[in-house]
């Protein structure tokens, strides 16, 4: 198997994730799109680790752990917004601008 097929799969997931974060207006859906990007990163890391040893796997584990923390915090902030505004439509937030 070629290294490239994994890298290209990751590239596709990354691009789809980017599309998602630009397009989705629901805060939770944006976070899901971010997960797509982070998973793309992990595929890259693990694929490379077949060449370079376990460093990539360690890195991937850290990414998974940090992603969990990020999602938790993100959902807390989204909940906070929801409580104050009764909406998770992040595109409606424009109190601060200019």
């Amino acid at each position: 198997m070629l290294l490239n097929q994994f890298l290209l799969l990751a590239a596709v997931l990354f691009s789809v994730g980017v599309y998602g974060v630009i397009v989705r207006r629901n805060g939770v859906l944006v976070l899901m799109s971010v997960e797509l990007i982070l998973n793309a990163v992990n595929i890259n890391l693990i694929a490379f680790s077949t060449f370079w040893g376990l460093g990539g796997q360690v890195f991937a584990l850290f990414v998974i752990a940090v992603a969990a923390a990020e999602v938790g915090v993100g959902l807390a902030i989204v909940l906070l917004i929801y409580r104050n505004r009764r909406s998770v439509d992040i595109d409606q937030l424009d109190e601060l601008k200019g």
Binding site: V18, I22, I90, D91, D94, E95, L96, K97, G98
Partner: peptide, 24 residues
């Protein structure tokens, strides 16, 4: 801006997803 704002301020729309789009 209504005729008074600088052109660059136009980027700062306050809309987060436009920021996202700009970023990527």
């Amino acid at each position: 801006a209504s005729g008074s704002g600088g052109v660059l301020r136009h980027l700062q729309t306050g809309r987060i997803q436009q920021y996202t789009a700009l970023f990527f």
